[in-house]
Nucleic acid binder design. Sequence first.
DNA 1: TTAGGGTTAG
Length: 804
Amino acid sequence: MKVEPEYKIDSVSDESSPTTNFTSDHRDFYQEILFGMKKIGFREFLHGHHFRGLVSELRQIHVEDIMAELMSESSDLSVWFFKELRDIYGFRHSRFSTLLVSHIFAGQRRFKELQVILEQLLQEEGKLCELLSNSFRKWESTGLVWDMLLFLSSRLRMVDESLYILKKMKDRNLNVSTQSYNSVLYNFRETDKMWDVYKEIKDKNEHTYSTVVDGLCRQQKLEDAVLFLRTSEWKDIGPSVVSFNSIMSSYCKLGFVDMAKSFFCTVLKCGLVPSVYSHNILINGLCLVGSIAEALELASDMNKHGVEPDSVTYNILVKGFHLLGMISGAGEVIQDMLDKGLSPDVITYTILLCGQCQLGNIDMGLILLKDMLSRGFELKSIIPYSVMLSGLCKTGRVDEALSLFYDLEAYGLTPDLVAYSIVIHGLCKLGKFDMAVRVYDEMCYKRILPNSRTLGAIMLGLCQKGMLLEARSLLDSLISSGDTLDIILYNIVIDGYAKSGCIEEALELFKVAIESGITPNVATFNSLIYGYCKTQNIAEARKILDVIKLYGLVPSVVSYTTLMDAYANCGSIKSIEELRREMKAEGIPPTNVTYSVIFKGLCRGWKLENCNQVLRERILEKFNHVLRDMESEGITPDQITYNTIIQYLCRVKHLSRAFELFKKMKSQNLDPTSATYNILIDSLCIYGCIRKADRFLYSLQKRNVSLSKFAYTTVIKAHCVKGDPEMAVILFNQLLDRGFNVSIRDYSAVINRLCRRHLAIESKYFFCLMLSRGISPDLDICEVMIKSDELLSWTIKWGLLPDQ
DNA sequence: TTAGGGTTAG
């Protein structure tokens, strides 16, 4: 039976010398225990009621003295006491007793047990160095404990401690094992210090050499690594597969899969057997350059080399499909995985989740996450949740992201810097800056320090709020902090300037970036193009296209589309066509944003306001032509493209064609937006089809479609004008019932129109309705009311004559 | 050797 610890351990400031705290009480206490043990028998005493009663009084100092006493009889007894206390009573031992037992283990060469207790010691203790030296002076045994401590501390990345121990060992001429040296070497493999450690190692082994190769690869000294591999120094051992793997991995990271392949062949030629690692590295490299077919082939050939794919292999392949944007293609990989008796793990699920989110299938992602939860992966990692948070944020579903974020704690997960940054960024992007700041403060309160990405999100929020000065000073503070900054952080503020039409400031910041040696990217220039277009300087904007090329970059579809939009706004169809040809020549495919702009340009250029029947037919023909272009290029219009086309079809009075497109939109599973409905309802009203507008509105209401206020006010206004004020009243009340924020402008629009039609009763009705809703009339409304003969006396009665 | 966060256009 396990007994829960019934005491708290005092923190003892200096346990290195137990005798310093020796008091008569203490001595009595431990002698009482020793006496009991000897009389009753050690095991019986320790497990009996008597000892249990003493446990709450037990302190580390007692334990140390008892152990020292037991040592004089038999070291095994001392170890036994140590373990019983730890395992039965959950006693947390002091450094002294741990080291005492360590030396016993070392002497008896019980390395596994030695490793376990030293690991615990290293993980629990903070400032070890100076205390260790005091503790070790007590034993003149072999250097085994030191060596093990060196090995473990360097494996735990406790660099300072390991260097300290190494120095002490050298001072005392104690033997440092190759294993420990290799572990130290490993910690320094990414720095020049690696060679100092390397030189000290007398008995170098395979691990030593492969660590050096790996280090050189990590230091981007790939050629040196290859040279080292060929060095005669280790001819007697010969290079290992591990070293080849490091080199192959480096070539793959650089995108040189062919080089990796040739090293793979060299492995075979040397008579070595490529491991699962070697295969996985090469399969991963192939996937990264998009050669999924070859990757699959290599995976299926693995058994020819006497190895079997593992779950890492399958995950790499799943990721390969994900990278190609073909996550559905991963189905077969998963099936193979299951056939081999391997189950998808958290990583598999996370990649699948990434793939679904990338395709915008957020709901599918949520299902996957749920599935994962039901398989009990919930406590393992925050990463899948971060993927989900990111997917939700990118599609504007920030509220859901926030609620998932705050559920994390319930799943036993603590959000980390990445998760916080995703949510903060999502909120900023959506303009919810105040909420973002609240989350940011919460993060800081939890002592999670923001990095430049988190601060980039905050800068984005500031820019969107128009707080450019604040955004700039945040950027400046990052610059002066001395960290190397990304172009992206500059881009955020440059774009902020451009969006607000501050092209001079944008250019100035651009210069700062260049002078700091930061290379701009296409997004930087695209923002500048936007800035010039915004300030009506299309000529300068266009010149940027050449500047982009001067920097060795390629203009993107965004560069062209932004320029086209500027031309579209002034109806310059010719320039748009020119750019369209240039894009085609450069091999830059348009997107549906480009096409929206093209449609806009066509409509503006044709001056639709005065268009006759012949022109209308030509426009319709052109629209159909461009739509066919889109189709042939495999671009599916999105909601905004549809809205643009529908809007312009409406402008040229092709309502039937507009409604056809509306139907087509739905048939393609694209949910019309409230703007779509607004455009259609507005057009029906403009062209006098008010009954149709009523029916359309009614059908939408019946289907619970979410409509904006505009849809209602448009129909209401039409009824006021066309003389059906009763319908206006009915719809206006619906507007109020549905909780829309009805302003004085809405009342004004209705009253204005009714007065002009001399509809006095309804005017009064709306006037009173407005007052009853706590809205006071403004000067405009009063003037309109007074101008109407029927309402003049009524208005005077209400005391609403203007002051003058 | 496998999983998460950033900038630009309608």
